[in-house]
């Protein structure tokens, strides 16, 4: 297994390199630049601005220079949009917020999603299943930009239990985490139900049952292992997404997280910030997909590390 992980980590280097390079050049071909503004900047000023930010140099020179700074110094450069902050600072500042929001939402999603999914699968095609599945479907049908404001209207404005938005006290965590958690809970519930049903009828489960194993033991010891495969595959990229923040939730609730930077940096053509967030996200995706592959082997003893 260690060899497997070591090989995968080695593979990460070219993957990150390709992502970085592709993103660097992609964003330069997008119309509009960091200094495109409603009040047009005069050509002289634009020339001076580009010189000040080294944008007047040939693209490959900018690229090699950027690469050198990232690889040798871990320096992601200054932000174009926020000139008094560096990309490293912005990420260091905002990632913890998104991590916290994501971790709490993930907890809600896992607990609620797995419970609903397992219940629905075990009692498949009974009323319990219908209730659980429908609850999950509501989570899917209610987009976050609807659920968030609804929760605010109810709990903040009608009942006065929470603030409409902000990220100050513990109370401020509840509504955004709930909103974000609900969507993922719904996905997890659906995938768990599907995965469990696949497994519950497999021969080895029957064998276990025939051997007289109790229902709970069958579910948790045997069925859940195989049944979680699709959920685990889904969770790799999903966790990367959830931990790096959600644009919609962070905007609706005014949360100073990284999710807004992901989307806004592209809109602002903040070249360095785009690259910084992409590198971070890529690293997370790669790491989590590696974890998923390891977990999959662990869940399925028939597999071996190749």
């Amino acid at each position: 297994m260690l060899r497997f992980i070591a090989r995968r980590l080695l593979e990460t280097i070219p993957v990150l390199f390709i992502i970085l390079t592709a993103t660097f050049f992609m964003i330069r071909f997008v119309p509009g630049g960091p200094f495109t503004a409603e009040k047009a900047v005069t050509p002289e000023v634009m020339r001076n601005l580009e010189r000040a930010y080294d944008l007047d140099k040939p693209l490959w020179q900018q690229y090699t220079r950027y690469l050198r700074n990232v690889v040798l110094h871990g320096d992601l450069g200054p932000s174009f949009k926020y000139p008094n902050r560096t990309v490293n600072e912005i990420i260091a500042d905002k990632l913890p917020v998104s991590l916290e929001l994501g971790a709490e939402a993930l907890l809600i999603a896992l607990v609620a999603g797995l419970t609903l999914g397992v219940l629905a699968a075990v009692k498949s095609n009974t009323w319990i299943d219908y209730i659980c599945s429908s609850t999950a479907m509501i989570g899917i049908c209610l987009p976050t930009f609807v659920l968030g404001p609804l929760l605010v209207l109810l709990f903040a404005i009608r009942l006065g239990w929470a603030n409409a938005s902000g990220w100050y006290g513990p109370v401020d965590r509840v509504l955004p985490c709930l909103t974000l958690g609900c969507v993922y809970a719904a996905y997890i519930a659906r995938l768990t139900r599907g995965g469990m049903l696949e497994v519950l009828h497999q021969d080895y489960i029957r064998t276990a049952r025939a051997k007289g194993a109790g229902q709970l033991r069958v579910i948790f010891k045997h069925a859940l292992r195989g049944g979680l495969l699709p959920v685990v595959s889904f969770l790799g990229p999903a966790i990367a997404g959830i931990l790096t923040g959600s644009f919609v939730i962070e905007t609706i609730f005014q949360i100073p997280g990284l999710g807004r930077e992901f989307v806004n940096s592209a809109f602002n053509r903040d070249y360095t910030l785009v690259l910084g967030t992409v590198i971070l996200y890529a690293a997370l995706i790669i790491a989590l997909n590696l974890v998923v592959d390891v977990v999959q082997v662990w869940l399925n003893p028939k597999l071996k590390f190749e």
Partner: peptide, 11 residues
């Protein structure tokens, strides 16, 4: 929309 809700809750 959220700003208006913040106004209503007194934030």
């Amino acid at each position: 929309s959220n700003e208006e809700r913040m106004f209503r809750t007194g934030q």
